[in-house]
Each structure stands twice: as C-alpha cells, then as structure tokens.
C-alpha cells in the first residue's frame, strides 16, 4: 500500500515533515486542580491533575519526595470497534508507567515531600500518537495546576514508510506495522527523556527518524508555550493587573 504518493503527499494530504493540527484547552475539568484537553489532528486526549495533596495510602508515603501516580485509560468509544477492556490490560499499565516516569523527571518532587500528585489521562479519540498526546496534555495540566516543573515535556512520534521518514503518524500509518518512534524531550535543556521504538530499522535511518521526531517535539513545545502564555494573560486580566 502506498503511504507516500509520488508527489510527496501522504494519505491525509500532509507532507512527510508536516505535523497535524494542534489544539489545546486548559481548565476543562472544573473539579480538578489542573486539567487540559489536547488534540493532535483527530486524536483527542483529556488530562486531569490532582495535587499536591495528602497521601491516601500512608504506607506508600515517601519522606523526601512527592509520590506521583498516573493512570492511562482509553475510552470504550475511542477506537473504531468498541473496546472490551479499557484499563488494566498490559498496554495501558505500561503506558501509565511510561507517562509517570517521564513526568517524574521534570516535576520537582523534592519541593513537596510526603504528598501525592495524581495524573489521570483519558483518550477520547484515538487516531495514532495517543502516547504523545497524553504526555503533552499531562504537561499542560500540571502547568495549569501550578505544580513546579524544571521544564516542559513535549512528545511527538515519527515513522518510516516507503523509504521516507514521516512525522506524526496517524492510525492508518501506524497500523502499517512499520517502525514507530516516540520521543519525549525537555525542550529548553534539549535532552531526551522518553524514547520508545518498535519494528526494525537500520541504525543510521533510526538517527534521522529520531531527529525528525525531536524537531516535531520542539514545534509542539512552541505551541504549548503560546497556549500557556495566553492563559496566563487571561488570568492577569481577570485579576485586573
């Protein structure tokens, strides 16, 4: 099947190095301390953050750091066929673990000892790149909740089909069983914190694909920064500053 036409257009009309349209909204869940909705093309994800608050399970309390918990679920209606088991299966547990460890790298946990921060992420529409959308949404939600972070974490995925590196795969391209590289970076420090890859790739092509995904992450970081600045300006206006 042809994923890149001879003119260089993909199945949805994008160029190989073009990302899908991004859209973000803060404060979607009113009861949560911080929340965000993040859309990458047709993939839509909602994240809610509760904390820092008292640790619910005293035996898990850490004396010098905050305890971070994360739960990733996919809504039943998020994929084409109705899903039987939205959470508790291995893939969800692994992605929860990955998101938690990625956010732990950027949250300044030692400023909030003996407390707990919960991150809940739910996928409302899945069209490829759900992992990246979840991390971007979690970053926004943490910033909305005012939790101290050393840097934003942004994430983007890239693949390699028909001998072309492609940025930001959608579901059809993802299910082509070609390589899928997900990268999460700390943009200001320019360091890679999350890197996952499956399927086979020769090493030099992998370097190109990873570089492309990193560029995509930086683009997402610019967008997120704009959204946060916009939001802060609105808060200032409301305070009458």
């Amino acid at each position: 099947m042809e994923y890149v036409s001879p003119e260089g257009l993909r199945l949805d009309g994008r160029r190989p190095m073009e990302m899908r349209q991004l859209r973000a909204e803060l404060g979607a869940v009113s009861r949560a301390d911080g929340s965000a909705v993040f859309e990458m093309g047709n993939t839509k994800v909602i994240a809610a953050v509760y904390g820092p608050r008292e640790v619910q399970n005293r035996s898990q309390q850490i004396n010098d750091k905050a305890l971070i918990r994360c739960e990733y679920t996919m809504a039943n209606f998020s994929t084409g066929d109705r899903m039987r088991k939205p959470k508790g299966d291995r893939r969800s547990t692994e992605i929860s673990l990955v998101i938690r460890q990625t956010m732990e790298a950027c949250i300044m946990t030692h400023l909030m000892p003996r407390s707990q921060i919960d991150i809940f992420v739910q996928v409302l529409q899945a069209d490829g790149g759900t992992r990246s959308a979840c991390i971007n949404a979690a970053t926004l939600a943490l910033a909305d909740a005012g939790i101290p972070m050393c840097d934003l974490v942004t994430s983007c995925s890239a693949g390699y089909l028909n001998s072309t590196p492609l940025l930001d795969l959608n579901y059809v391209e993802d299910s082509a069983r070609g390589p899928d590289v997900t990268v999460g970076i700390l943009p200001k420090l320019d360091k890679v914190t999350l890197l996952q890859m499956d399927a086979k790739l020769p090493m030099d092509i992998f370097e190109n694909v990873m570089q492309l995904a990193t560029e995509g992450c930086k683009a997402v970081a610019n967008y997120i920064r704009e959204v946060l600045l916009e939001n802060t300006k609105q808060l200032e206006n409301r305070r009458g500053v």
């Binding site: 790298a105 914190t193 890859m197 020769p202």
Partner: peptide, 8 residues
Amino acid sequence: VCAIQKAG
C-alpha cells in the same frame, strides 16, 4: 534497531 525503551 529492533526496539528501544527509555521510559522517562
């Protein structure tokens, strides 16, 4: 490269 895992 068959797989890479760097989880945070």
